[in-house]
Amino acid sequence: MKVTLKIWRQPDSASQGAMHTYEVDQVSEDMSFLEMLDVLNEQLNTQGEDPVAFDSDCREGICGMCGLMINGQAHGPEVTTTCQLHMRSFKDGDEIVVEPWRSDAFPVLKDLVVDRGALDRMIQAGGFISVNTGSAPEAHSVPVPRDDAVRAFNAAACIGCGACVAACPNGSASLFLGAKITHLGELPQGQPERHSRVVDMVAQHDHEGFGGCTNIGECTAACPKEIPLDVISQLNRDLRVAMAHGH
């Protein structure tokens, strides 16, 4: 099949960008979306035009490196990562608009590549359990109720791709934040730092320039790992309790 691509091109973060139109022929429905872009790039290389820069690494939906806004949807029309989106989700003759994640906290570095360092800095602010190597007690010394372990796992499934931020009309990273708060907060090991963690991470979130959450729910609809919205409720509850405790 043949598709028309409208792709955001921007040489670097200091320059202005614009949409460019390309046509890609002989697209097979078994191709992943990124493999279709590989074909485009091979074509551009032959024509002497700079290939389109986009991020991807594992291409099996777990590393979180890829992420494109495809026809106005983060990661495109399926609930999955961009690398696991296949061209069978499109039709012959489709026009596909491809844009980078748009968030001032994620500056565009080139074309479709953005800088998501803000997410790392939020983890640095408190997204961990402080335990030095070698100081851990025997693993079975603290049983964890299975339901808590399952809920922690569901939140820990976050891959840090940034789709929640990209999809949120407010540009908020609350789903990412809530996922980490819930993951660590559900576990007994995470209790000692529970209050300081949420306060510090929220402060860093706001400092990075992400928007505030208005509980709209676009984030969870875009999340390729289907992190539920209740992690944001957990985040809010933990923040309320922490503030009540004088943090």
Partner: peptide, 22 residues
């Protein structure tokens, strides 16, 4: 064996049985 202890302490959500053990 030390690796498992370390990871559990960090909050790695390993699969658990109903009794709460790994």
């Amino acid at each position: 064996a030390n690796i498992i202890d370390q990871c559990v302490a960090q909050g790695v959500p390993f699969a658990r049985e109903y009794g709460g053990l790994l």
